[in-house]
Amino acid sequence: MDGITIGLTVGGIIVGAVITYIVSKYFFNKSLKEKSLTPFLQFTSRLFSDLDPELKEELIVTYKDHKIDNINQVQFLIANDGDIPIKDIIEPLRLIIPKENRVFSANIIHIEPEGRNIDYEIIETEDQNIIEFSIPLLNSGEFFVVKLLLQDSLPSESKEEKEKQNKITYSFTITADDLQPNLKISRLPYSYYEEEKKKKYNWTGFWFGIIFGVLLTAIIGIIYSFKHFAKELYLFSFNNFFNGETFSIYNVFILLLALLAIVFLLITIVGIVQAISELTPNKKPKFKVPSKLRKGRARSYPFEIFD
């Protein structure tokens, strides 16, 4: 058995093992079912932060006869990104905000699917503000978007209190079967938005794999051909090839050709991997968010709530 046969045999075993692993892992992951409710932070921004300082000094916004500074706009998308419907909730989903961060307004601006009934209520307690959501049912891939308008801190006579900038902390809680009581807030990936244009495939890796694969095959064919008419130049017969009596400049050329073949092999493998990764679909998100809900496309928040 020569070197080429051994190489092909070992390569076949490795390729078979890799394919078996990929297929078995795919079907195993597909069989898993999980229950998950995730609040995604779409964006948070401070209104009037980009205004000219002089204009900002002249701009006065009041709420119930109180001047308002540091107005924040935040948007959450709450989604069932698991595989199991969420229903029969024991204690409702609650968004908890510190007391000093007064909630001026909360509004559910989008529900997917349309017609799904989701209610909410703003509750003010002695130590915190709570937005409580009533969710009768949320199937896999369904979600709703809530937009909030709130303040960094309550008005104060102290300049130190006015100048102090506090980062607003949010927490989501729920009591339901197979769900954690405290939900982790995540950033919404861009891949979850609907694409306006179809994806264009990059065929560079494919063509590199084809071209250098052909060159690699030609080099292997040339090296293998010496087995039949010049055995002292046949690389895979190591005893004859590295024989001190017959070793010549031609053997050196064959070695350089073999090194070039290794380089072409690496380029071919990289090209094939890139082509496969380009054509292999990524894990599809459980839901798709309309592009109109991106921050850049979101409507200006209604200011009618201000007096």
Rank of each mutant, 00 (worst) to 15 (best):
L93H: 03
E34Y: 12
F238P: 14
N80C: 06
H110M: 10
I123R: 13
F287A: 02
D177E: 14
S300V: 09
K164H: 13
E160T: 14
L233M: 04
V146R: 02
K87S: 06
V263M: 10
F43M: 12
I118V: 01
L77E: 05
I267W: 15
D127I: 01
G244C: 01
A275G: 02
V74T: 15
L188F: 01
S300A: 09
L255K: 08
V273C: 00
K164G: 11
T246E: 06
F247H: 01
Y192R: 00
L255W: 03
I267V: 15
I122G: 02
N107D: 08
I86D: 02
I13D: 00
K25S: 12
T204P: 07
Q151G: 10
T62P: 07
Y250R: 07
I211S: 10
S277M: 00
K288T: 08
F238V: 12
F43P: 13
Q75M: 13
L37A: 06
L77M: 09
P302T: 03
S45P: 11
E54Y: 05
S237R: 04
K231G: 00
E157K: 15
V270T: 11
S277T: 04
L266W: 15
K56F: 06
K227D: 03
L59W: 12
P92T: 02
D65G: 07
S225P: 00
F212V: 05
D119R: 08
L233E: 05
T173M: 10
S186I: 05
V74S: 14
G296F: 09
G115C: 09
F287W: 03
